[in-house]
Design a protein around this nucleic acid. Structure first.
Lengths: 113, 113
DNA sequence: TTAGTACTCATACTAAAGTATGAATTGTAT
DNA sequence: ATACAATTCATACTTTAGTATGAGTACTAA
């Protein structure tokens, strides 16, 4: 009886430890995969903000440090078009400046860190 | 015997699942703590760039999305002083604009991501 | 077909950012 | 004491950024 209940406890302890470790390892792999593959951009939040495809493109170029003229050249449109997009982005992100828009976008996880 | 072994298996299964989850949770917390603590700002690179204490301060405020006037108010100096600092920061980081300075500073790991 | 949305562009403006120059002050190292 | 770096500030200027408004085009859903 003593030996029996003791062996059961050991078995349980071993199982507990093994699965504790397995859980930790699997969790680590999942997180690392997540870090490598997805930059974790919240696509849903982009839609919630009402950002159009083009506006989001412009936001990303702003975050990469480009001027309106440079963005215009890159996207093959006029600078005035970019200004329109930028203004819309600022309203939708509730930002006063493009630098603030970058910060807000990072916090909302809608652009790369 | 059937009921006995079955109940033991259930207990073992429950313990396995519980410790699997516990292992995963603890692992996640450890990782998150690690992300919080390590900001990994390259102080040496700041010196190499020749950024002064005040210039670096201004750079950080730029990155947080503030305007020159807002930075001036925060640091209790005139806007013209901030403009001087900003110009110096741009030269030292080899940036054309403040948005580009933010990007470069992030790549050099001299500001928070 | 029509209403709506997204994208485009222009013009005209105001505001903010950035440059250039010169200068005064302070603390520090030689 | 003096040279030096850092910080501060101003004035004048050019360049970007951002706002406001109106309008044309294209695509899509009702």
């Amino acid at each position: 009886m003593f030996t029996g209940s003791a062996s059961i406890e050991i078995v349980i302890a071993v199982i507990a430890i093994v699965f504790f470790i397995v859980g930790a390892i699997i969790n680590k792999r999942v997180i690392h995969q997540g870090q490598q593959t997805s930059a974790e951009i919240d696509l849903q939040k982009i839609e919630e903000l009402g950002l159009s495809k083009r506006e989001y493109e412009v936001l990303c170029e702003i975050a990469s440090g480009l001027s309106n003229k440079e963005i215009a050249n890159k996207l093959f449109v006029s600078e005035s078009t970019i200004k329109t997009h930028v203004s819309n982005v600022l309203v939708k992100l509730n930002a006063k400046r493009r630098t603030q828009a970058i910060q807000i976008a990072k916090k909302l996880q809608i652009i790369e860190q």
